[in-house]
Deep mutational scan, measured.
Amino acid sequence: MGSVRTNRYSIVSSEEDGMKLATMAVANGFGNGKSKVHTRQQCRSRFVKKDGHCNVQFINVGEKGQRYLADIFTTCVDIRWRWMLVIFCLAFVLSWLFFGCVFWLIALLHGDLDTDYKDDDDKSKVSKACVSEVNSFTAAFLFSIETQTTIGYGFRCVTDECPIAVFMVVFQSIVGCIIDAFIIGAVMAKMAKPKKRNETLVFSHNAVIAMRDGKLCLMWRVGNLRKSHLVEAHVRAQLLKSRITSEGEYIPLDQIDINVGFDSGIDRIFLVSPITIVHEIDEDSPLYDLSKQDIDNADFEIVVILEGMVEATAMTTQCRSSYLANEILWGHRYEPVLFEEKHYYKVDYSRFHKTYEVPNTPLCSARDLAEKKYILSNANSFCYENEVALTSKEEEEDSENGVPESTSTDSPPGIDLHNQASVPLEPRPLRRESEIGSRR
């Protein structure tokens, strides 16, 4: 089982795998120059863009038009607004034209077009017409509009002379109601789609790998820009990579689940303020055997998904993003964004995407760390350097704002901070800030 798991979770494809794949392509008759073999020097295209759209195009789909027309309502909801407006206008105009032609044909076959009612006051002739005051196609078209929109100006009306005319008036009224219901329903469904809710759900630009509770963890940050909550919010993550099976089958995008606390339930989050999602790199993680150097040379993509129900409509929305291997910062942490004021908490989104480097973060893999092949620094050293990194950030910001350097908390000259780390230190809580992250 261990060997199978290692093969499945191998992220960085070796040169031997690339040569094996190329040999397979030639042997199977696919070596026509169009096949692409992804190596370390040639990274694959992003499968999920940063804005959440999937970078996929469908080609050679059989009976595409028929399949889309069979699900016309979903098609109308998914198309762009400009095409929705075109369909909206065409549906009414074509129905008016169709029934206008029908009423014109009825008048033509009944002989109503030969009668001039402007110079004739004989009401008996008017009563013999199928539709009064309809003696041309324009008049028939206007009567069709008046019937379907129930305008009723009063000059044109159907008589009991022709039952077919009466039937067409009733039929057009029913068709008009159906068109109204369909168009209004599609427009309302399109307006109520929770897709735009994703514009106020954000992911951090970069993911980070750092120590948390004595273990290497992959972390990324999510935030909600609205005050309205995302009900039943939960997160998922998958690692996408290519691999070759033991039988020699090439899988271009193998999807591997990344555990973010599904078993323990901590994948469900209360997204009021930005939260750091934590994936513990343990023996079940696809990143277990990867060191910093392996991450730098790897070719994979981590897709992160945030799902929840919109509070206003109770409709489920899904926000997506992805991180390539070069977008994962090893040995970094996110800057705090949640600050405790006197009577409330304040979230500073200008710090949302910012990170700071944490010294002495192990550069080895989580496996080597678990097997004690890498000796961690003293816990006080880690905490102290973590505090120094934050303090230096604040000093830089104070210097930019014009604060005198004498007010900063610099260490005395001639003292090495790293050498001082081995000395037991008193706890130094942050002056006014605390970061709330997901705790395992």
Rank of each mutant, 00 (worst) to 15 (best):
G2L: 03
S3K: 03
R5M: 04
R5L: 04
T6D: 14
I11R: 03
S14F: 05
S14Y: 06
E16Y: 07
L21E: 13
T23K: 06
A25K: 09
A25N: 15
A25E: 14
V26S: 14
V26G: 13
A27N: 13
A27D: 08
A27H: 12
G29C: 04
F30K: 15
G33W: 04
S35A: 12
V37N: 09
H38D: 12
R40T: 14
Q41P: 10
C43V: 14
C43T: 14
V48W: 06
K49D: 11
K49A: 06
G52M: 02
C54L: 07
N55F: 03
V56A: 13
V56P: 02
F58W: 09
I59P: 11
V61Y: 10
G62P: 14
K64M: 03
K64G: 10
Q66M: 14
Q66V: 09
R67P: 05
L69M: 13
L69I: 10
F73Y: 10
T74E: 14
T75N: 06
V77Y: 11
R80G: 04
R80H: 06
R82M: 15
R82E: 10
M84E: 05
V86F: 08
C89W: 05
A91F: 11
F98E: 00
F98K: 00
V102F: 11
W104R: 00
L108F: 08
L108V: 13
L109Y: 13
D112G: 01
D112Q: 02
T115K: 04
T115S: 10
D116V: 15
D116H: 12
D119I: 00
D120I: 01
K125H: 15
V126P: 05
V126H: 05
V131M: 14
N135P: 02
N135M: 09
N135T: 11
F137D: 02
T138N: 04
A139S: 15
A140P: 01
F143V: 07
F143C: 02
S144D: 01
S144A: 04
E146Q: 06
T147H: 06
T147Q: 03
V158H: 00
V158T: 00
V158Q: 01
P163F: 07
I164Q: 14
A165E: 02
V166M: 11
M168N: 05
V169H: 04
V169P: 01
V169Y: 08
V170R: 01
F171A: 04
Q172R: 08
I174E: 02
A181C: 15
F182S: 05
V187W: 09
M188F: 07
M191K: 04
K193S: 05
K193V: 06
K195A: 13
N198I: 13
E199R: 13
L201G: 12
V202F: 05
A207N: 01
I209H: 01
A210F: 04
M211Y: 09
D213F: 08
G214D: 04
C217T: 07
M219A: 04
M219Y: 04
W220L: 04
V222F: 06
L225G: 10
L225Q: 11
L225C: 11
K227I: 10
K227G: 08
H229R: 12
H229S: 11
L230F: 04
E232C: 13
H234F: 11
V235Y: 00
A237L: 01
A237Y: 01
L240C: 11
S242Y: 09
R243A: 09
R243G: 10
I244M: 11
S246G: 12
G248C: 07
G248P: 04
G248V: 02
E249S: 08
I251G: 15
P252N: 15
P252F: 14
L253T: 14
D254I: 09
Q255T: 10
D257P: 11
V260N: 00
F262S: 05
R268W: 10
F270H: 08
S273K: 14
I275C: 08
I275G: 10
T276G: 05
E280I: 08
E280F: 09
E280D: 09
I281A: 01
D282V: 10
D282I: 06
E283C: 10
S285E: 01
L287H: 00
Q293D: 14
I295H: 10
N297T: 08
E301N: 01
I302C: 01
I305Q: 12
I305P: 00
G308E: 06
G308F: 07
G308C: 07
M309L: 07
E311G: 04
E311R: 04
A314I: 05
M315Q: 12
T316L: 15
Q318G: 06
L324T: 09
A325Q: 06
I328V: 12
I328P: 01
V337K: 02
K342I: 08
Y344S: 09
K346F: 04
V347D: 00
V347T: 13
Y349G: 09
S350T: 11
R351M: 06
R351W: 12
F352D: 01
H353M: 04
H353Y: 03
T361H: 13
D368H: 05
L369W: 14
K373H: 12
K373E: 07
L376M: 05
N378G: 12
S381H: 06
F382P: 05
C383D: 15
E387N: 02
V388W: 10
S392C: 08
E395W: 03
E396V: 12
E397M: 08
S399A: 15
G402M: 15
G402T: 10
V403D: 12
P404F: 09
S408E: 14
P412V: 08
P413T: 13
G414K: 07
G414F: 07
G414Y: 04
I415F: 09
H418F: 11
A421K: 05
V423P: 15
V423A: 15
L430T: 11
R431T: 13
R431E: 15
E433Q: 12
E435L: 04
